[in-house]
Amino acid sequence: MDNALGKSPDEVQFRFRNDEMVDHAAVTVDSCCDQTNATAVRIEPGDDARVLLPFLDRLALIEVNFPAFGDGRGYSSARILREAGFTGELRAVGDVGIDQLSHMRRCGFDAFAPDKPLNEEDAKRAFATWENVYQATIDGRQTIPQIRHGG
């Protein structure tokens, strides 16, 4: 179906969900708030992810853009969205490298569309970097302190 919003420009390389992908491009946070038919939105580093909280029910995809991998605001955005109960696709796009994958996954990202395609083997290893973890996040993993004290 032709969509007024156009086709998604992302090349999704890794996806940890089985539902169908949203096939149109994401709109900006501003237009998402004004426009009721958008089901995909893109967050830039300076956007306040909490602005989206009233609209989470109708969003199937939230893209978090990383124009530069050293700008870590998107990690907080992701966690905030998951903490608020967002269950749709949370996609990291932009300057996403091998060495960011494991932390991004822990913050709630379940899809990755790196600008530069990543080596599959390296990525597989990166996702499995930490057999156990110290911090509790919304990924539901049992933490080392929890394991130590019987879960």
Partner: peptide, 13 residues
């Protein structure tokens, strides 16, 4: 120390 080691949200402050 443990909490701050490899903190997933706070690695690119």
């Amino acid at each position: 120390r443990q909490w701050s080691s490899f903190h997933p949200e706070f690695t690119y402050l």
